[in-house]
Design a protein around this nucleic acid. Structure first.
Lengths: 219, 219
DNA sequence: CGATTCTTTGAAAACAGTCAATCTGTGTGG
DNA sequence: CCACACAGATTGACTGTTTTCAAAGAATCG
């Protein structure tokens, strides 16, 4: 997919809009994130390198960050907003596999690292501001800033552990228990994403989720 | 958990047996694995370091490599045999979340890196030979051999992608489709592990799997 | 305000789980 | 070597849960 940032031309069929915006502190969340995940401080010089490797971009609600079939050429660090990653099956049913909020990353890792066409769509569920970077920029950063490498190691480990937990939940818990887990661990998701998407994420129908919620209320 | 390798004393309640065995080529699969996953050649000197960081150990069928509640202090590279990783719920039902065969790793990543008690059991489904290493040994290797670091990066990415795919399968495919996927992608698992474990891995009952297989035969 | 999207509700059908009995193959001890 | 025990697989009847379909109600956005 062509995100349109580094290209001057809007691709046919895509609903991009450009809005130039920058502010002094818009890279701060990213800096803080890197410091948190690497356990190291970022110097002024490193900070400048990081800034120049990331480009701000805004996405309107419902706008695609990535479409199935395209290669995910960018990783997006979310400054503000909400996105979802999902596939669409033969019957046209959407299956949400990931939610992203502030200070989370969006992008299909497999497609991004392997340069293969993505199976997934990613779109904005709210108006969203992100910082985008490419594989090459990231590679350069990793080579020149040790903290970046550490951050990725930590991220990889945590996301591996998180997905492992999710698999465990999906095979050993009932739909109701999975919902309880989610609302305990990620209450923010329930408030930012519509229930039909939450249901899809949990692997159940919207109707079933509605009934689970009703039952939970009466307790 | 105490695996008993580096300790001279057998822990009460554990069914360990010791059997000293070494051979010239027993580290070869590990070397090849590292070279494959890092894309780099291992020098003779590096090979020696690797050998000294891993200890061979044999596990008998049904023997635990890790018990829930213990910290996973070792990562095991499987030379020969078959293992499974699973949790046990309140009702005593086992839920398999991982299978390991030759040239795969076994060990609870979360417990191993965070030093927290593991939720999972790992046991041998066949008589199994592994190469064990500790966090400290691994850390040292990573610092002195660049290929080891690369190998882990690749492993992390692949396992993340694999778990992502599995989540996708678990929420968007029916039990039958999941079984088809498994038999297409990992036919070896079906031949090495009993059906009740396969069923558990797929998140369905052994009876349901039996019926799915029967239906598949008649096609 | 009107249109669209999201949520809720009901009833029927499909699906998977549970329980219990039987069958099969394996390995063990007498 | 045989008999027996045991683990694993299969089958049927039943139960419970989830999906599907359809319709109505609520909330949101332009």
């Amino acid at each position: 997919m062509v995100l349109g940032i580094f290209e001057p031309v809007i691709q046919p069929g895509y609903d991009f809009y450009f809005f130039s915006f920058t502010s002094d502190n818009m890279y701060e969340p990213l800096k803080k994130y890197i410091e948190d995940y690497s356990g190291e401080a970022i110097s002024e010089e490193e900070y400048e390198m990081i800034k120049s490797a990331f480009t701000p971009k805004k996405f309107r609600k419902k706008q695609y960050l990535l479409q199935a079939g395209d290669v995910s050429r960018y990783m997006a660090f979310i400054i503000k907003g909400a996105v979802r990653q999902y596939s669409v099956d033969d019957k046209g049913v959407e299956h949400v596999i990931y939610f992203g909020l502030e200070n989370w990353w969006a992008g299909d890792r497999e497609s991004f690292t392997m340069l293969t066409p993505s199976r997934y769509n990613i779109d904005a569920v709210e108006d969203t501001e992100v910082l985008l970077t490419t594989y090459d920029h990231l590679d350069q950063l990793k080579n020149s800033i040790p903290a970046i490498g550490k951050m990725f190691t930590t991220m990889d480990q945590r996301s591996y552990i998180a997905t492992q937990k999710r698999i465990h939940a999906s095979i050993s818990l009932t739909a109701e228990e999975r919902y309880q887990e989610l609302s305990k661990n990620y209450p923010a998701l329930l408030q930012r994403f519509p229930q039909n998407m939450i249901a899809s994420y949990l692997g159940i129908s919207a109707e079933t989720l509605s009934r689970i919620r009703k039952k939970a209320l009466s307790k």
